[in-house]
């Protein structure tokens, strides 16, 4: 009997842990389960199982086009954010530049501004400069949002870089550009890969900014949103499940890559 009370704190901790896990996974599991249901309505009980919904999704031109569009936007904004973010991080650690704290604060601002506010301000901004809504505007919005994450990741890695690696490269005959591309950039590599994958996920996931800045061509979240408004169906569950599996796989792979690089 004494044992039971002595173990109470541990037992309750364990219980909370499992409850949390359940809370986390149950909705996802339900969503996945429904995507295999052989009926038109998303509800229990699931009588028969089928892969038809997946077959349907894979043939859905709208869905495939939205996927492609999202990936394209993600790729473009990631490229831009990574370049910009790395450059800003280099500026922040560089010697002899004033106002590094201010640069850092400004670079990080978009990460803490609420998505809604940032979306509205971007919308106002592009209409002020007479930029049409659409692809370019979305890429711009996603880039601004992603830059802080690249800056922070690159900065962390840069700060752990032995100061004389670049000195050594310069000493052996590299000018500062060669030293950057042959020494600093490879050193930053793992952090940048991690940052880039994070940017991709942020962009694919983004709804608010895309909604405010987008034209008529829907990205993936916009398409799913439109479909949900037309009523739930297992087809949407199948779409969502596919997106979940792919993004989770990408995220895990990124984690694996950065971890492997970090052990070096």
């Amino acid at each position: 009997m004494r044992n039971m009370f002595a173990d109470a704190p541990r037992t309750s901790l364990t219980a909370i842990y499992w409850a949390f896990l359940l809370y986390l996974l149950l909705p996802l599991t339900l969503m996945m389960a429904m995507s295999f249901k052989d009926a038109n309505f998303v509800a229990f009980p699931i009588g028969d199982w089928t892969l038809d919904w997946y077959a349907k999704v894979m043939q859905d031109k709208q869905f495939l086009e939205a996927c492609l569009y999202s990936v394209m936007i993600a790729a473009a904004s990631t490229l831009a954010a990574t370049t910009l973010g790395t450059w800003i991080a280099m500026l922040i650690v560089a010697e002899g530049i004033k106002g590094q704290v201010i640069i850092f604060a400004l670079a990080c601002l978009p990460a803490v501004v609420p998505g809604m506010i940032s979306a509205i301000s971007l919308r106002i901004f592009i209409s002020t400069i007479d930029m049409p809504t659409g692809t370019a505007a979305i890429i711009l919005g996603h880039t601004v949002h992603a830059v802080p994450f690249v800056v922070v990741m690159a900065l962390t890695r840069l700060r752990s870089m032995p100061g004389n690696l670049v000195d050594a490269a310069r000493d052996l005959g590299a000018d500062s550009i060669v030293a950057f591309f042959r020494v600093t950039l490879p050193y930053l590599g793992p952090a940048l890969v991690g940052g880039m994958i994070f940017c991709v996920l942020l962009s694919i996931d983004d709804f608010v900014r895309t909604f405010f800045l987008g034209g008529y061509r829907p990205t993936l979240p916009m398409l799913i949103f439109a479909k949900v408004q037309g009523g739930m169906s297992p087809e949407i569950n199948a779409m969502a499940t596919l997106v979940l599996v792919v993004t989770a796989a990408v995220g895990l792979y990124a984690e694996y890559m950065t971890r492997r690089a970090r052990t070096r």
Binding site: L165, L172, R264
Partner: peptide
Amino acid sequence: VPPNKRNVNIVFQDYALFPHMSIAKNIAFG
């Protein structure tokens, strides 16, 4: 004259070997 244009080389206290390059690549760098 900047360091990359001088015909002297330094051995650093903590070696400063390029961590992502093999030994041979490190030596080949210069």
